[in-house]
Structures are given as structure tokens and as C-alpha cells.
Amino acid sequence: MSRRGLGIARCLVLLLLLTGVCMAQAPSPQTPLTPEPDRRGVEQTYLTYPEWFLVFSSAEYADFVRSQPPSRFPFIGHVRQFWRGYAAVDSAIRDKYPPNDEYHTMIRVIGVSTSIEYGLRRAYESLIGRLSEATTAYPATDEDQLAARAAQEYVDFIRLRPWYEFDFASRLRAVWTAPWWGKDPLRKWERKYALTTEFAAKALYGWVIRKATHAAYGEARDTTLAVIDHLPDGLETELPKLTPLAPPDERGVLVSLPRYEPFSHYASVLAQRQVRFVEIAGNRSLILVTALTPRGWAAPAEFGAPLFVEPVMTRPDRQRVALQVPVAALDQALRTLSQPPMVLEHVFDY
């Protein structure tokens, strides 16, 4: 090799070494911008579905009993849907993400307890409940109306807070302070017994679960940190709980968003403002989204194959579709799923 060629080779080697040093010092583009304490494993976006299905089930029940007696509600069908949903998410994450044994154990515990509760309610309502229904036109009694209100109040509460914090005791007192005489006394007394049993058992069970949960995990965080590509002007009034946590740079903006049910609303509003998500709780891969769509609706090809599709049993014209959406495409998915007649149900922000 000529002296000139040797000099060029040496320069190339030096350049490669310097480039390697700079690359080693620069953060990987895949390194999450979310601080470590606020990151959650990707598997949890899937594993939160069975918990939220119980919210969806309660909402379906609350809507149903406004006009129809509880004996006609498909309790056993909902038990089946719970376990099918859990099987689907377990299959999706098995061997792909680190095991999360504690979360699996929690899901199985609530699944078994819900299966027992729904089984007992189905048996009771099919026998005793149907007999008392024959004496009245539903929902004629104060107790039926109280039960329907309590069911809706429960749903509104658990969209924001854990179920075991709901005040079942005050609903139990309302059952006993309602008049003992009036139209259709047999139905009134039967409902007093049924509601007393239900509210008392849930109040006691909720107290036990609350103590155990706080002892094991402490108070749950009520925010989710996300990185978005930009922050549009004028969001302060529309999304008052959105808080920027760092100045914007070329990588995006780190923001704090409310967790649980409000996250879906905040994410949808941001999507309508053409904001793209970069990370959600440190996750840049997939996030689970459910929507209620007309029966037979098929997801666009860019969203991939649905994780599962389930009928809404009290609404023959509707189905629940679960989609595994790339975080970077979440804004596009939310804009699509927010178009009537579709209803965005939930974005699983862990």
C-alpha cells in the first residue's frame, strides 16, 4: 500500500474509533425517555384487560337493569367472556415478555371470585328473583329503583377508583331505610333480602381486599407518563390535568396524564389534535385498545388482526373488538375508532 493509501486508512480507522466512542456515549433511540419509576412492562397493557372487563360488565348490567329485571342478565355468558379474554391476552404475551406472576395471580383471584358471585346471582335470580317478579311490573318497587341507581353509581366510581373503595355500606343503609310497605310488598321484601346480602358481602369483602392491597402495594399511582411528539397550543382548558414535565426537544415532550378511565379521553383529544405518541409509560411497542363497533365490522389492515372479537350480549347489534395497536400509530387508531357509529371503549394505559 502506498504511503498516501496508508495515511487514508489510518484516518478511516481513527474516524471509525471516534464515531464508535460518540455512539457509545449517545443514548440509544430505543431508550425510554420516561423515568424508571414511571415505566411499566408491556405485558401490563394486556393484563389490565380482564380487570377492565369487569368494569364493562358492570356497566352493561347497570344499563340493562334500568328497564329489565336482573334475572334476564347473561351472568354466565359474562363469566365465559372474562375467561376467554384472559386466555387471549395470556396467549399474546406468553414467551414474549417477562413473566408477571403477581398480576396473573391477581387476575385469577378476581376471576374466580367473580365466577362464584355471578354463578350465585344467576341461580338466585333464576329461582327466587323470577318468582317475585311475577307479582309486579319491573321496576315498580323502591328497592328495584335503588338497585339500578346503585349499579350506575358503582360503574361511575370504578372507572376512576378501585372497586373496593366504593361505599357499599351507605347503599345498605338506604335499603333498610326505604319504606317496608307499599306496592308489591312481596317483591319489596325479597329485594331487601337480596340487596342486603349483596351489599353486606361486598362491603366486608371490599374492606378485606383494601387492607390487603394497601399492605402489599401501597397506594396506586393515578398518573401515566407519556412522550408525545409536540404539544399543541390551547390545551389547558380542554385537558386541565395534562402537565408538561420537561421542555420540548427533538425527541418529544414528556407529559403527565391522568390514569385509568380519563386516560382514554385525554389520548383521544390529543389524537384529534394530530398529536403522535412516542411512549406510554416507557412503552414504544404495542398498546391494547377496545372499541364497541357494529356487528361484522372489520378493523383496517394497518391495525393488524384483532386480538379477539366478542359480542355484546345485551346489545345484539354491537361487538367488542380488541386491537393491538403500535404506540406510534395510536393517534390514527383513535381517530378511526372515534367515528360514529363506533365507540372508543378504552385505551389500556396499564
Rank of each mutant, 00 (worst) to 15 (best):
G20L: 11
P311C: 05
S91F: 06
F157M: 07
S58P: 06
S115P: 00
W297E: 10
Q25P: 00
Q145D: 07
D144F: 06
P50G: 03
L54C: 11
S28C: 03
V327C: 12
L17I: 09
A291P: 04
E236V: 01
T223F: 13
F308Q: 08
Q152N: 09
L127R: 14
E198M: 02
P306I: 11
S115D: 02
W181C: 06
A333I: 13
L235K: 10
G304Q: 02
G182K: 07
T177L: 07
E310I: 10
L225V: 00
C22K: 09
V278W: 00
A24R: 04
R315S: 12
L15I: 07
G304R: 06
G252H: 00
L292W: 13
F348W: 07
L47N: 04
H214M: 11
L292K: 15
G20M: 04
A9F: 14
L231N: 06
T290F: 04
T105N: 03
A147Y: 02
Q68W: 12
D233Y: 08
S338F: 06
V269G: 09
R276V: 14
M342K: 14
H346F: 12
L231E: 05
R276D: 07
A24H: 04
P27Q: 06
P306M: 11
V347T: 06
E102G: 09
D90V: 00
P98G: 10
E345I: 01
F166R: 08
F82G: 00
E345K: 05
L286P: 02
R173C: 01
R122D: 15
A137I: 04
V175I: 14
E236G: 10
P258Y: 05
D156G: 11
Y266P: 01
V321Q: 01
Q81K: 04
P262Q: 03
R4A: 09
R121Q: 14
L242S: 00
H104Y: 08
S264Y: 03
L54D: 03
A271R: 02
V175E: 00
L239Y: 01
